[in-house]
Simulated assay, not measured.
Amino acid sequence: MRAVRFHGRCDIRVDEVEEPICGNGQIRPAFVGLCGSDIHEYLGGPTIVPVTPHPLTNEKLPTTLGHEFSGTVEEVGSEITEFRVGDRVVVKPNLFDGTCSNCLMGIFNCCEKVAFIGFSSQAGGLSDHIVVDSRHAIPLPESIPLDIGALVEPLAVAWHAVSRSPLQTNETVLVVGAGPIGLAIIQVLKVKGITSIIAVEVSERRGEFALALGATEVLNPVDVDAVMQIRALTGNAGADIVFECSGAQAGLDTAIAGLRVRGTMVVVSLWEHRPTVDTFAVVFQEKNVIGAALYDDGDFEAVIDEIASGMLCYYPICCPYFLIRQVPSADLFSDIGGIQPRPMITSKIRMDDVDARGFKALIEERDKHVKILVDISA
């Protein structure tokens, strides 16, 4: 079967590998999203992908990529009763040992040996078939198309990040960085009832997406003094909650400076280089800084419920306006409930094109794309 495997920095290949033998459950992937962490690995790795055998999975380079994906159950193990052949699912990709101190506290997303389907195991969504333990398969209702199902994982990251914050509905929230995770957080904030959402983004097109998906203000720090504008919009106080999603020093500086006294910053982004933190602002203004990693139990299900509630006739699957390239109007979504993530899909490609039209497109044409999906069946 085909599998997109990471062999090293800037080296991914569509390899022919042996088809896995079904254990607990075999899934045929349908759509796989390319993630910022995939790009970080491609450009600067291996970092997440292990060079030596991983302590949990015992796997190492080369590894099959793909951790944001939906699919259809093709085969089930003899002891599996909760799934049948033909069921549609999304896959929760984090792996954990269940025995470390964090896992014993029930915080499995912070496992000391955390591993991932699509990074630190030979299983990955960018393949014709994949075998996963049934506990990693989350049912996808018929009302949600499989391409939208591939967006559940990044939306679950956003759901968890928002859940980590002390959010109140009357607060002003700042989102720094309107990439896929920042845009997902904006959508989650909207369904949580937040009506004052400020986004800071250098890309004009991603700023337009932010407005369309729920932001009330978008500030481009290339054109304006973002911190000054944030203070002007908040009575000179600053935002109550900030989500740092840029992974850039300038973005982190804006997040801290734009946060009010005793406000809370949630760091969601991954960093290639260790940033500098303004500890004077943190100490003397008693600002809170917390992290958000992956997702808790129940986050996937909560996101699926919210997507299902937003799957209305306003959203025709066949309409090319929603499929590729066009930035939607904010008015189009103002009266629709739930999460409507389809506008995030800016391209669909075949597996054979994953390098040129996937990874390289996200690197060289970053402003044109939010989420590129790989259609495994194409």
Score class of each variant (00 low, 15 high):
304 I>M: 06
222 V>Y: 04
282 V>K: 02
233 L>C: 02
269 S>N: 08
243 F>N: 00
275 P>H: 07
262 R>W: 11
222 V>S: 07
210 A>M: 13
279 T>H: 15
233 L>R: 05
280 F>Y: 11
205 R>W: 08
200 V>G: 06
238 G>Q: 07
257 A>V: 01
217 E>P: 03
191 V>K: 05
225 D>N: 15
265 M>Y: 04
291 G>A: 13
290 I>M: 09
299 D>M: 09
202 V>N: 04
226 A>V: 12
215 A>G: 10
190 K>Q: 07
307 I>N: 11
219 L>M: 13
298 G>K: 08
188 V>M: 02
245 C>T: 05
278 D>N: 11
300 F>C: 13
259 L>Q: 07
196 S>P: 00
235 G>Y: 02
191 V>C: 06
273 H>Y: 12
285 Q>E: 11
274 R>I: 15
238 G>A: 08
275 P>K: 03
273 H>C: 09
293 A>K: 15
305 D>L: 13
264 T>P: 00
195 T>W: 01
262 R>N: 12
208 E>Q: 14
272 E>L: 05
239 A>T: 12
237 A>L: 11
298 G>N: 07
263 G>A: 12
212 A>Y: 00
199 A>P: 00
211 L>M: 09
218 V>Q: 10
260 R>S: 14
243 F>W: 00
187 Q>R: 11
237 A>S: 10
261 V>T: 15
249 Q>I: 14
206 R>S: 10
300 F>W: 12
221 P>R: 02
284 F>M: 08
192 K>F: 08
245 C>M: 01
252 L>V: 08
256 I>N: 07
255 A>V: 10
306 E>R: 10
233 L>W: 03
251 G>W: 00
247 G>M: 11
268 V>W: 06
210 A>Y: 04
293 A>Y: 15
282 V>Q: 04
241 I>R: 00
206 R>K: 14
298 G>W: 11
252 L>H: 04
274 R>Q: 13
232 A>V: 10
258 G>T: 13
199 A>G: 03
196 S>F: 03
295 Y>T: 07
244 E>D: 07
301 E>W: 08
195 T>G: 05
230 I>A: 00
261 V>L: 10
217 E>V: 15
189 L>S: 07
194 I>V: 12
260 R>G: 04
194 I>C: 08
189 L>H: 02
232 A>Q: 11
282 V>C: 02
276 T>M: 11
219 L>T: 14
285 Q>I: 03
296 D>R: 12
207 G>M: 11
191 V>M: 03
195 T>V: 09
202 V>L: 13
238 G>M: 04
303 V>S: 03
289 V>A: 04
287 K>I: 14
250 A>M: 09
235 G>P: 05
197 I>W: 05
283 V>S: 12
199 A>R: 01
249 Q>N: 10
204 E>G: 06
218 V>C: 09
276 T>C: 06
264 T>G: 05
287 K>G: 11
202 V>Q: 08
216 T>S: 10
248 A>C: 09
